[in-house]
Amino acid sequence: MSGPFSDLEDTIFSDKSVLTEDYQPEEILERDEEIEEYRYALQDVLFGRAPENIMLYGKAGLGKTAVTTYMMNALKAEAEERKQADDLYIHELNCNGKTLFVVVRQLVNSLLPENASEFPKRGLGTSDAFEELYRQLDRVGGTHFLVFDEIDHLDDVNTLLYELPRASSNGHITNSQVGVIGISNNYTFRQSLSSKVKDTLMENEISFSPYNADELQTILRDRADRAFVDGACDRSAIAMAAAISAKDMGNARQAIDLLRVGAKVAEKNEDRKVEDDHIESAKELVQRGRLSNRVRDQTDHAQYILETIAHLEQQKKTPARSKDIKAYYEKVTTEWGSEPLTTLKSIQDHLSDLHMLGFLQRSEQNDGERGGRRYEYELDLDPQIIIDARKEVESE
């Protein structure tokens, strides 16, 4: 008896997971300089000395998280072979959409004994969570690296970066050592920190620059050799995916996505090889998907504001002033059953952030001596992408 899958006999893939975002390569390509900087910043741990704090900067898809995972695994393996090195513990957390309390609570729970009750979600404050964190760090002992991915998304990052690096000097921990590793997509993140944090953090900074086309080709050739059966991916298709990504953002994740989606297009067309036309077809699909994911990564109210401007754009009411955006935003939030932000300043702060992130275009208007200067905003991407992404979020 035949079924809908009975005619599927083979595939162009040998290991499709190689092209997924979760794949961690055994070898990191085209990041030798950054790995060497990282190696120097981490080396004290191998001699039993206090770990240094490290901040990584660079846009998404430039290898910051992959390199960090690679270096942490290598450091832990080496520390186990060194008599001078303390027991080493790595704690990795993603800060996107989380409060400081949630992050500290997660750290506490990762350190608690196996049979202990979790730190409560309610009833205690952030200071209580920090106190418990220090207790657990000293109970476990050793050296701990706390890795905070997307640290620039944390609501009260100044408190985190003031508390943890000073935990030993302030007497909060005596039997353990702590190093902080922050990963940020925002090159100007350090400028947003308070002066007291900047003065005490004393971090090593490692900046990840965009890949060029040759570097992306090296990465894609390696992935293609692992992902596809022999002869199933044309070298010119790899060159095209690398060139598109290098011209756009120099983003390895985007280049790999182009290859993966191009392969899906080829299979759907029942073609046996990924070629240039498949990559060309994948280009728009990947672009829309990436923009949608960027929208979904924003806070709830940032998304409401983006949806507001998308609707205004479709009604041809942009560029729009912040007070007009606020009025429509209140309608959008109410329709989604949420409480709107109440002050114009809070809306303007979100608009400024969304402009900085590249979602919005901003133009300055001068209304003369009495009116003063003001900004008007409009989207810098297809409004339908915003609306579609918002519908998907709310339906989850």
Rank of each mutant, 00 (worst) to 15 (best):
V103H: 07
I28N: 06
N269Y: 11
E132D: 08
V332E: 04
S14Q: 12
A85K: 07
I386L: 05
C233K: 00
M72I: 06
Y304C: 11
K247R: 12
V180H: 11
D349H: 09
I256L: 15
Q287L: 13
G125N: 08
I28V: 15
N269Q: 15
A41W: 09
K273W: 00
I12C: 01
R122I: 03
E203Y: 07
D225Q: 12
E335M: 10
K316N: 15
I386Q: 05
D86R: 09
A167D: 07
F5M: 06
T188K: 13
G97E: 12
K76V: 00
L62T: 08
A255G: 04
P165V: 04
E313W: 08
R272K: 14
K323F: 15
S192D: 03
E132R: 12
N251Y: 10
R226Q: 15
T68M: 15
V393F: 01
N170Q: 14
E205S: 09
I35K: 15
A302M: 12
V18P: 00
L160N: 04
G372Q: 11
P383A: 03
N109T: 07
Y57R: 06
Q24V: 10
N158G: 04
L220M: 03
D225A: 09
P113L: 00
T159N: 07
M55T: 12
A327S: 15
L46N: 10
M1T: 03
S194V: 02
V295K: 03
R253K: 04
K345T: 11
N293C: 09
A213I: 01
S194M: 10
Q177Y: 08
F145K: 05
H91N: 05
S346W: 13
